[in-house]
Design a protein around this nucleic acid. Sequence first.
DNA 1: CGATGCCTTGACGAATGTCAAACCGAGTGG
DNA 2: CCACTCGGTTTGACATTCGTCAAGGCATCG
Lengths: 204, 204
Amino acid sequence: MPQAINSGLHPMYELFFENINKKVALTEADKAVIKTYLTPKKVRRKQYLLQEGDVCKNIIFVEKGALREYSLDESGREHILQFALEGWAISDLYSFLTGEPATYAIDAIEDSELVLIGKSAHEELLVKCRAYETFTRLNITGAYLAMQKRLTSTTSASLEERYEAFVALYPHIAERVPQHMIASYLGLTPETLSRVRKRISQNK
Amino acid sequence: MPQAINSGLHPMYELFFENINKKVALTEADKAVIKTYLTPKKVRRKQYLLQEGDVCKNIIFVEKGALREYSLDESGREHILQFALEGWAISDLYSFLTGEPATYAIDAIEDSELVLIGKSAHEELLVKCRAYETFTRLNITGAYLAMQKRLTSTTSASLEERYEAFVALYPHIAERVPQHMIASYLGLTPETLSRVRKRISQNK
DNA sequence: CGATGCCTTGACGAATGTCAAACCGAGTGG
DNA sequence: CCACTCGGTTTGACATTCGTCAAGGCATCG
């Protein structure tokens, strides 16, 4: 019953390693070392992985499912900072690195299967395993560039352009996630996004 | 005449190394290796370091002076992505890393003294010198966190809060840079920023 | 002294948010 | 099988905020 073994006692972390391997070459030894630091976790829809005010203890990698990270403003409104589908990592990085209380919350949009990397694990891996450090560097660089693009589009593009760019860039998110969350990600109200979509469909 | 030697034939890159040393411990050997890859450059106010459409060939570190990086939208309006004062690095990172034409321009707000790191230099240093890779990782992580904060404040905070947070975080920029550029950085028109400042001063 | 760049002020219009209601489809229980 | 509920989306009327355009003021520098 290899299936039972894989998903239970000896998780394989397949997507996780596939993801690393896209960016750096891992030896089997590296892989074995890294594996010892990982913790699998399953969560239900709507379950919190991190609440505002708690310290973020993990970097969370999504093997299956969908998560979101968001902040709450003074009026209690949610502002989504990031989605994470299969193959993505998510964390309140500032809280994770500094130990300060988190300013963001993370919860599950769907039932999900995750891989957790704790802080001491992360720190040790950075030192012990150069491939892990390189992977981390490349990962954060990619995240930085993506966010830079997002910031630029916020100030330079029309709502129509921004929404269409989002759908083009993340078609799977647009399919799976309710629209009011996409509105939140784009910094709009659900009503405005609805009207934007209407305008787009009319101009075709 | 040590002064003449320092600034001319044998630049010292003092601020540059001080900056690295804040994040990682550099051996003298590291330092010597890195030095061989650096190029000093002086520019005048308004001079371009990068124009939209050109490939970005360097990471630019500011020893003295002030630079800005900005994009142009369809209407020709400038949107400032980043300032760089003494001790800061700036680049169109996407263009630098991929070799694609730059989508941002960089120019000097004041006469400036710079240190350039070319692409092959950067790549070799990443491999040859682990301290340099670690520095790069920490640097980009800091830039990522700062941008994340900026993005969040864009969607969650009032204009007053955003302007005051900017001044609190970057007092030296607020002092030295014309206000219409700060407006551009914040994503506002100069008129609106002027009114925001007026409202702030009235509520005191 | 006149030009220039930058900041401010005012009047106005357009875009987006707000609030309320209606709609729609999926799942649930009668 | 139908009616109901619930979350999510759409629509409408209205208020607010910010951008636009135009003018004026003020300092700096030739």
